[in-house]
Amino acid sequence: MQAVIVQAKRTPFGYKNGMLKAYQPEQLAAPLIQHLCKTMVPDDVILGNVVGGGGNIARLSSLEAGLSLTIPGMTIDRQCASGLEAIRIACTLIQSGEGKMYVAGGTESISRSPMKERARFSPAWLGDPDMGDATERTAAKFSVSRQKQDDYALISWERSMSAFKNGTYTEEILPIGKWSTDEGSVKIRPIANIMQRAKPIFLPKQGTITAANSCKEADGAAAVVVMEKAEAEAKGLRPILRYAGSAVTAMNPHYPAASPIDAMKKLLQKHQLSIEDIALFEINEAFAVKVALIARTLGISYDKINKRGGALCLGHPYSASGAAMMVRLFYEAHTLPQGSYVMAAIGSGGGVGLALLCEVL
């Protein structure tokens, strides 16, 4: 059995307490599910969610979308890696013969979250640093300077601004209510002018992380349709990406920004591939230090990473971010030769790294 991705969409992303603040997570996911299931009935809906009100948000979203009462729904939490993990689970279910069609992704309304404090990532005896503190530790441990972070951040911001200007994001986005574009498109400032003036936000005196080289929290949802290849072709659907494999690893929770590195290495080794064999990478931009560190460690050119920009401008809706990366790769795949490989990688609180590999069909 081969698992393939045949459709992909995301909502616009709105900053925390911004344009999408009135929407609950199921209200963000439901329009996507309706759109992706217009002519098909999935075996299940699998969604990541991190800061919702609890319960089975995937089932709630499915019902909110008007799908059959017989579709179960499954919600998972691997923190920021949840949306990518949902897609990974759907692909492996198809490969095992358990089903033939799944909607998989993530949905997050940070604005509407009832959680007053963040969840614990690790036990107190091991230390449970906030993500900002942990990322500053990562930057210090691996010697990623403020300048290196700002250098990458400027590239990413410029790519996002170009994508807004050229309408590149339009193909990714399913409008929600009156919103058809990301909040970042109307709040972009001349980032080059403020990059060097931005002050550290976690360690005021010696810190390297600023509002310009880190993401904003955001609301949004993203999902893909994963199908068994023969089933997709029988229904007249064009497979765009074939799931080739994945890897998940973990490390010291104090250095979560470094966590995708081992997952990416493991995945490449498992498939006997090198960095040169991968045409495009999507790496979550919760912090610029993460991309700068991964690129340096693995020898990846920025030309291959996040061609459409990423969370530094668009925002980071936790569990939806990994799925949004797959949405971007889905549309970028249309520009790549058949047989090319693409990879999505993300790290999450607690020091967990996840990487997923696909072949362009």
Score class of each variant (00 low, 15 high):
Met1Asp: 09
Gln2Pro: 07
Ile5Met: 12
Val6Pro: 00
Gln7Asn: 15
Phe13Asp: 02
Tyr15Cys: 06
Lys16Trp: 09
Asn17Gln: 14
Ala22Pro: 07
Gln24Leu: 14
Leu28Pro: 01
Ala30Ile: 04
Leu36Asn: 03
Leu36Val: 08
Gly48Phe: 08
Asn49Gln: 13
Val51Pro: 01
Val51Ser: 14
Gly53Trp: 08
Gly54His: 13
Gly55Asn: 13
Asn56Phe: 07
Ile57Pro: 00
Arg59Asp: 13
Gly73Phe: 03
Thr75Val: 05
Arg78Trp: 06
Ala81Ile: 05
Gly83Phe: 08
Gly83Ile: 06
Ala86Cys: 12
Ile87Arg: 05
Ile87Glu: 07
Arg88Ile: 11
Cys91Asn: 11
Thr92Pro: 02
Ile94Met: 11
Glu98Asn: 10
Tyr102Val: 02
Val103Gly: 05
Gly105Ser: 07
Gly105Val: 03
Gly106Ala: 07
Glu108Ser: 02
Lys116Cys: 06
Gly127Arg: 01
Asp133Trp: 01
Glu136Arg: 06
Glu136Leu: 07
Ala140Phe: 07
Lys141Ala: 13
Phe142Ser: 02
Phe142Met: 05
Ile155Gly: 00
Ser156Leu: 07
Met161Cys: 08
Met161Val: 09
Asn166Gly: 08
Thr168Glu: 11
Glu171Lys: 15
Glu171Met: 09
Glu172Asn: 12
Ile173Lys: 02
Leu174Ser: 06
Ile176Pro: 00
Thr181Gln: 14
Asp182Val: 09
Ser185Pro: 08
Val186Glu: 13
Lys199Gly: 03
Phe202Ser: 00
Leu203Cys: 09
Ile209Met: 09
Asn213Tyr: 04
Ala218Trp: 06
Ala222Met: 02
Glu228Ala: 10
Gly236Thr: 06
Leu237Asp: 00
Arg242Ala: 15
Tyr243Thr: 03
Ala244Cys: 13
Thr249Pro: 07
Met251Trp: 04
Asn252Ala: 10
Asn252Thr: 06
Ala257Lys: 02
Ala257Phe: 05
Ser259Leu: 00
Asp262Gly: 00
Leu267Gln: 04
Gln269Trp: 06
Leu273Asn: 00
Leu273Ser: 04
Ser274Gly: 15
Ile275Met: 13
Ile278Lys: 00
Phe281Trp: 11
Glu282Leu: 06
Ile283Asp: 01
Glu285Val: 01
Ala288Gln: 01
Ala288Gly: 00
Ala295Arg: 06
Ala295Met: 13
Arg296Pro: 03
Asn306Ile: 08
Asn306Cys: 11
Gly310Gln: 08
Ala311His: 01
Tyr318Phe: 15
Ala324Asp: 04
Ala324Val: 03
Met326Thr: 10
Met326Arg: 03
Arg328Val: 10
Arg328Gln: 15
Gln338Arg: 15
Ala345Asn: 10
Gly349Glu: 04
Leu354Met: 08
